[in-house]
């Protein structure tokens, strides 16, 4: 198997465009083979940081990218010397595996700022709101010396569980016109973030939505601290306040980076990588494909038995060996 080039790892520490390129190349290598993350961490001595990792999630069209753009400007003026990274994830097509990554469109005014680095990623079939390679990209950003990293999730809204494990604090973004308060009651979304941002405050219905959220929180678990902020990213209203609340809540959560959390994250990642490998062998091994066709044509016998047979076959299949040239899917 290829190893990560040491010269790229060394160059990525350079603060100029050499470092920008080397870091970007490392991100690609780790994105395309997430199993290399362990090698990267070992070679770089497990870089600590970034100081602050903040997640932004919410339904498609609620204004996440525009909010990230406004937050970049706010953090740049709060911390003029800080380098800030952005990881923006958009969905891959489940049919072709292709993707259009367009979060950058909203952030282009920062494109020439040497202190800002934006990386777009496709979800590549991974569910949970992030992509499997996000951990790797984040560790490269840590190694490059970024102080703050903002992570914008895929805009699906109700399955964004990965971000809770990855970020120090998460903002759930809502916008008027995206469904009534029943949507807020549905499990998942409201349990994610310590911050609930009602965006598009310049539009009708934003204040009513904020009131609805507050009413909903009164019914909810009172042990958890949550704040609701009314923001207009396009008119830059409430953004500085959001940035500073985000920062203090995130800093207060540094205990989330305990050894226990790191172990839990490592456990999750290993599980995901093993699942990916298992799927690959089930989908690609000729013996298993033949067996599948045979069993479907002769559907006698239990499916539980079939599943057990397939798992046993996958465990002994040749393709369970490393095969970086043929990743499992999308």
């Amino acid at each position: 198997m290829n190893v990560l080039p040491d010269d790229l790892i060394a160059q990525a520490r350079d603060g100029g465009h050499i470092g920008m390129r080397a870091g970007a190349r490392l991100m690609t290598l780790l994105e395309n083979d997430p199993e290399k993350q362990a090698e990267f961490l070992r070679k770089t001595g497990f870089p600590s940081g970034p100081r602050l990792v903040l997640g932004i999630t919410g339904a498609p069209g609620c204004g996440k990218s525009t909010l990230v753009d406004a937050l970049l400007a706010a953090f740049r003026s709060l911390h003029p010397d800080a380098r800030i990274g952005v990881i923006a994830i958009d969905p891959s097509s489940p049919f072709t595996g292709g993707a259009i990554l367009a979060d950058r469109v909203r952030m282009m005014r920062h494109a020439e700022d040497p202190a800002i680095f934006v990386r777009s990623m496709a979800s590549r079939g991974h569910l949970g709101g992030l992509a499997l390679g996000v951990g790797g990209v984040l560790s490269v950003m840590a190694w490059m010396g970024f102080d703050i990293v903002l992570i914008e999730t895929v805009g699906v809204g109700q399955s964004e569980v990965d971000i809770v494990r990855t970020a120090d604090e998460v903002a759930v973004v809502l916008a008027p016109g995206n469904g009534d308060s029943l949507q807020l009651l549905k499990a998942g979304l409201m349990e994610i973030g310590g911050l609930i941002v009602v965006n598009k405050a310049d539009k009708d219905g934003a204040e009513a939505l904020r009131d609805g959220v507050l009413a909903m929180l009164e019914l909810a678990d009172t042990t958890r601290h949550r704040e609701v902020l009314l923001v207009s990213a396009t008119e830059n209203r409430g953004v500085t306040e959001l940035a500073s609340r985000f920062e203090s809540l995130g800093s207060a959560n540094s205990h989330r980076r305990s050894a226990e959390t790191r172990r839990e994250k490592a456990r999750q990642l290993l599980l995901q990588l093993a699942t990916r490998r298992l799927e690959h062998s089930l989908e690609n091994h000729p013996r298993i494909r033949e067996e599948l066709v045979r069993r479907i044509e002769d559907p006698s016998g239990s499916w539980t038995g079939l599943v057990q047979d397939l798992l046993a076959a996958a465990a002994t299949a040749d393709s369970i060996q490393p095969s970086p040239r043929k990743p499992s899917h999308v």
């Binding site: 190349r25 993707a99 950058r104 282009m108 494109a111 934006v118």
Partner: peptide
């Protein structure tokens, strides 16, 4: 393919930096 779309009215400087960061 994975397409990174940057939108209209971009300067060559913006395009090159985006291309490098996105590798």
């Amino acid at each position: 393919f994975e397409v990174i779309y940057t939108g209209i009215r971009r300067t060559p400087e913006q395009i090159v930096r985006a291309a490098l960061q996105e590798d």
